[in-house]
């Protein structure tokens, strides 16, 4: 039984990172119906930015007390800001022109942007994995027979805090309202006097900033990064967003945690499970889409006419 609960903790902390990335996917999809393939790479870019900032601050190892809080906040916010701006830039350069083009066009552009970002990162830090300073001390606590580490709590906590903040933003602010209106009917929103371009840009800013936050925590959590990291994480996170119901913020979070849990549980209970995790995850995705196409929390919408 201890093993089961330990796997739940493992799954939740892995899922926390997926969830943070999935939030950005789901926001962008919700508003312009684009599978933003470059999003996974923006996440990796988040680890690269964080690393650059930490290096700039002269941080190379564990920190404690007030300096730790300061360094974490500065790095997190700066990485989020840089990733957010990157997202806005990508939208402006690559997607805006194609807003009214058939779906396939921006999708291909997104794949192209993903290649470009990967290449930029490879030129930046080379093709090999690079180490990321372990800023946060990592004590672990035993709860019963289950071990929970500080980093795991940080990942799960950050994901939940970010989602809550995003929910508040979307439902309590004017800009949030504009985003919901734009997602529902772009033309009508425009007629109502909403500045579509700004609204979409803000969506990209926030979504990409969340990917930046995910990048920072994953750097701290795993202690390493690599230019190609975003590919797999992006696919899984997108799966999470679809599983939860794309366009739905709480759904993305739920989907992220679920995918993490499915991976952990499949690894534990299927003989030779580690090699089947992807097959299980994507099979679950296919089944969910067949039997509940709108995802777990999404509203079922007929095809837009």
């Amino acid at each position: 039984m201890d093993v089961f609960f330990q796997q739940i903790v493992n799954g939740l902390s892995l899922g926390g990172i997926y969830a943070l990335i999935a939030l950005g996917y789901t926001m962008v999809y919700g508003i312009i119906e684009l599978i933003n393939f470059a999003h996974g790479d923006v996440y990796t870019l988040g680890t690269f930015f964080s690393l650059a900032i930490l290096t700039g601050l002269g941080v190379s190892g564990e920190m404690h007390g007030l300096p730790l809080v300061g360094v974490v906040l500065v790095t997190l916010i700066a990485a989020m800001l840089l990733c957010g701006l990157t997202g806005v830039l990508i939208e402006r350069l690559a997607y805006r022109r194609l807003r009214n083009a058939p779906r396939l066009a921006p999708l291909i552009t997104a794949i192209g942007m993903s290649f470009i970002l990967e290449n930029v990162m490879q030129l930046w830090h080379g093709p090999s994995p690079i180490s990321f300073p372990e800023v946060i001390p990592n004590p672990a606590w035993a709860l019963g027979g289950v071990e929970v580490s500080a980093k795991q709590i940080a990942v799960i906590g950050l994901a939940i805090v970010m989602m809550a903040a995003l929910q508040l933003f979307i439902y309590k602010t004017k800009m949030g309202k504009a985003m919901r209106a734009t997602a529902q009917d772009r033309d009508a929103a425009q007629l109502m006097g909403i500045d579509i371009n700004t609204t979409i840009a803000v969506t990209f800013l926030i979504g990409s900033a969340l990917a930046g936050a995910a990048g920072f925590v994953s750097g701290v959590y795993y202690g390493t990064t690599w230019f190609f990291n975003g590919f797999e994480a992006g696919l899984k996170a997108f799966t999470a967003a679809v599983l939860g119901g794309i366009g739905n913020v709480a759904g993305a979070m739920l989907g992220g945690f679920l995918i993490g849990l499915i991976e952990a549980i499949a690894t534990q209970y299927i003989p030779g499970g580690a090699q089947w995790t992807n097959v299980v995850v994507f099979s679950v995705l296919v089944l969910v889409l067949i039997f509940r196409p709108s995802g777990l929390l999404g509203e079922s919408l007929p095809e837009k006419v």
């Binding site: 089947w276 992807n278 995705l285 067949i290």
Partner: peptide, 28 residues
Amino acid sequence: APTLRLRGDYLAIVTLGFGEIVPQTFLN
């Protein structure tokens, strides 16, 4: 057969999932 009634983008994702499953299964 089961997936083609899905909306366009969902179909894309299902096929993506299928594309991941098949080679991994041949590998495993």
